[in-house]
Design a protein around this nucleic acid. Structure first.
Lengths: 336, 336
DNA sequence: TTGTAGGCGTTATCAG
DNA sequence: CTGATAACGCCTACAA
């Protein structure tokens, strides 16, 4: 019978009427049960149950001046990175009783407008570095509610979180240089695309400098698998004289490796390959992909926790947080 | 200067004051700009810009009786399935101007309470089959707003969406039976866990019947990779006399295959393996994993579109939607 | 312990 | 075209 939302939702008034009490009492029963006489409380609760009453979130938010929700703005959800981030964040937010509103920007028209609108429905906003928002929007929003940036400082003085990049990239590169004696390494990825890629390239360069070598310029490539064939061809056709490829992420590394292998190139014999992220496929391919694993979930959780703190105490100073990452050595670098 | 939300958010009153008009006019400028004289409109818009005014979503929702948000309840976000679903749903919802509130239930205490609460903040709820909610909660919520179920009918008469399972599973099994001449197939997964697994097993059985054979009982296993070793051992130690494994999903298939290969078993020579989902790793492993690909993203989008329709017209009858899937033949089944 | 009443920020109706 | 003003549903001093 009772089909989809046919019946109008019961309000606090319906409950009050039915239970023969005032709406104040109903509210109390739900918020501070202790302050109400057991008898009335039970009566009210029974009616609440009968009617399946649930307080209207909007009305509640308006009254308590809190949306009890955080906004999470991500470019997309491909690959495990953002999904893990969201998972961690959702958990952290939920622990504080807040829900998460996700906004995926890829393919959307006016991201700025959407972010502004979002700002009207949540208590705080987390912005992934890779999303394209005008700094005007960011600072406008930032003036009204806490904004946290991820893997990128959208604007100086915006508090941000990130996973460590430079040092791990340097470690990885040094591993290729020293342990495997590589001398013609290339970095695959576009440092100007995102802050993390930039940092990874910086580590790549640092490793060379530390070894008294000169780092070659990066081989531009975006994050998608589609770039694999192109990069592989470059190498196969001699446009790229390399004995090692430090890729900006796993998708890229896997795609390149696959095409190289298909063309008969010996990986890691002739050329070492490394990635970044440690996606599931990284441990299933042959040779296993040497990469870097990041505590993405934990990152998400920490960001949420920090957001909750900011919501409590608006005055704390912006901090820059960096979480450690760990290299995962498999076989694609040359290790047994 | 203007740090995080230090300054209180401007309201429609602030704007009205500053622009020397009534709040009604401000509201009009934002909702129906055509009904206001250009001069005043511009003045108001300028103030809006100056103050960075954004209407409070809660107040607006209260006034228009719509949250302009949908709730999406998923168990978790591991693997590409739910992430793609969310991506598609978010897109579909966004096209209707609604945002998406995600609720991840795994690891949460009182899911029923959370779902009820969520029902107070959104206009409609989408429930993934795998989430553990009492049917009491479902029907209670269903009485107030539209509820759509995914890959499972939480309760008879709840409108649901799913991807096709039986037929594809039968096709896949028949492929193993006929093309590769397998005769001792086993299904890996627990049919009683979820509706889709049940359906896949049904297809497995149907294929056998169609070939005049008898299907072996399923080998219980959950979806996680951790089950790989266990199942592999069973086979290695002879507890499982099989020449083919039809796994409930890719994680399982990949994990089992890996352990079998590590133990020196010839896949697909001695034993064929198939999965379900077509995750990224499926095309990177060797041999490539034969599996079934589902239009998950499109599924998400369609669900969102349907939800929007329900929100418009509450009276339409519940329908059961099934989207087609397509087998992806690689090498793990025995094909070249 | 319980009820009354004012306020939260917007929208929308209805006069001017 | 613009301005009062009544909802919207809930919370919370303040009174009783």
């Amino acid at each position: 019978m009772s089909s989809d939302g046919r019946t109008r939702r019961p309000t606090i008034y319906s409950v009050a009427d039915r239970a023969q009490v005032s709406i104040a009492t109903v509210s109390r029963v739900l918020r501070r049960p202790g302050e109400v006489r057991p008898a009335t409380r039970d009566k009210v609760l029974q009616v609440v149950e009968e009617l399946g009453y649930v307080p209207d979130g909007a009305a509640r938010s308006l009254a308590v001046k809190s949306h009890e929700a955080h906004g999470l703005v991500l470019p997309e959800l491909g690959g495990p990175y953002y999904a893990d981030l969201l998972t961690g964040y959702e958990q952290g937010a939920a622990e504080g009783g807040a829900s998460v509103v996700v906004l995926l920007t890829d393919g959307k028209e006016d991201v700025d407008l959407l972010v502004r609108r979002l700002a009207g429905r949540v208590d705080g906003i987390v912005l992934m570095g890779a999303v394209q928002v005008s700094s005007a929007t960011v600072s406008s929003v930032r003036g009204k509610l806490p904004v946290l940036a991820l893997a990128n400082s959208h604007e100086e003085s915006v508090e941000s979180f990130a996973t460590e990049n430079v040092r791990s990239a340097q470690e990885l590169t040094t591993h290729l240089l020293d342990v495997h004696g590589r001398r013609r390494l290339r970095f695959v990825g576009s440092p100007d695309t995102a802050d993390d890629v930039e940092d990874r390239y910086a580590g790549f360069v640092a490793a060379h400098e530390a070894a008294g070598l000169e780092a070659a310029p990066p081989v531009a490539a975006i994050f998608r698998e589609e770039e694999g064939p192109r990069v592989a061809s470059l190498l196969l056709e001699g446009g790229l004289e390399a004995d090692g490829l430090v890729c900006a992420n796993d998708e890229l590394a896997l795609a390149v490796m696959r095409h190289l292998l298909a063309a008969g190139v010996d990986v890691p014999g002739e050329v070492s390959i490394t990635g970044w992220d440690d996606v599931m496929a990284a441990r299933y391919v042959t040779p296993g992909l040497t990469t870097v694993s990041q505590p993405v979930r934990e990152l998400g959780r920490q960001v949420a926790v920090r957001m909750r703190a900011l919501l409590e105490d608006r005055s704390s100073a912006p901090e820059q947080h960096v979480l450690p990452t760990s290299p995962v050595i498999r076989q694609s670098c040359g290790c047994p």
